[in-house]
Amino acid sequence: MAGPLLDIEGLNVDFLTDQGWVTVVRDVSLSVAPGETVGLVGESGSGKTITSLSVMRLVPDPPGRITGGSIRFDGRDLLTLPERAMRQVRGNDIAMVFQESMTSLNPAFTIGDQIAEAVRHHLGLGRRAAVDRAVEVLDLVGIPAPRDRVDHYPHEFSGGMRQRAAIAMALACEPRLLIADEPTTALDVTVQAQVLELLRSLQQRLGMAMLFITHNLGVVADVCDRVSVMYAGQVVEVADVVDLFEAPAHPYTEGLLRSMPQLGVRGEPLATIPGNPPLPWAMPEGCRFHPRCPYATDACRSGAPALTERGGGHFSRCLRLAEIELTGAV
């Protein structure tokens, strides 16, 4: 296998809050190979969105600041790139799709104009060719009658169609990496299924890599090849998707899997992870998950575990990995 397309090493991101500077992303490492789909899973506040925004260098500053680490894309460190060169990377090499498609579409311009502008800017196409390209990508994402729809405004599209248009815009310049941040969370299940199917088929056809950020394990099971699980600003487990579901190696992952309501037994209480995720300015000593972990011992309260490989590209940040038996969702 060739080297990774995206390689994040030891990323640290700090935010200024009412409680002073706090580290919201700590020592996060993550890689995406060409053509691969990597899931980044976590609950709200886990740092998954900040990690993805860091790749695009779109962390709001202030209050945010990338304080350490490197983000290599195709060998180049994006964090040291001048802003001009970074602008070329955004959209051209790496594109992003957000949860609320309205945030990436400008309500004042037609869908066609917006896609064409991106294409002209990045690929240097002429006006006519750019509009043709817009029609082509709208067709690609399954928007019916794309010739007519290029002249429509975002508000004339339904929620699912708008998300398709946002994906079309992201794909227009044939990026090598697509970052999708909860792209289906705001959609209904039947429309979610359509968009997931679309992303999967597009990826196969275009051979691009995808970083898929979500809190929904069902979606992960559907689209991802490999998964990184984040908790309280750290990556706690990295695994192949089948391994992650069938043989999780971190108590938090196990807790998440057991919490899927589908796996509950009627008449019995649903499995839960007790307590709440810690606040960024009140991170527990030792392992950050220990206050909520059913397997925690004194060692977990004092020693911070490192992300260690248990074999076969399966990493876990747990001190008791060798001693405990975790069950997956089979």
């Binding site: 299940v189 039947t190 979610q192 299924a193 069902g218 099971a221 998707v241 579901f245």
Partner: peptide, 11 residues
């Protein structure tokens, strides 16, 4: 349309 929480079965 609800994805199953198991990659093998979902696929």
């Amino acid at each position: 349309a609800v994805p199953e929480p198991n990659p093998r079965r979902q696929r």
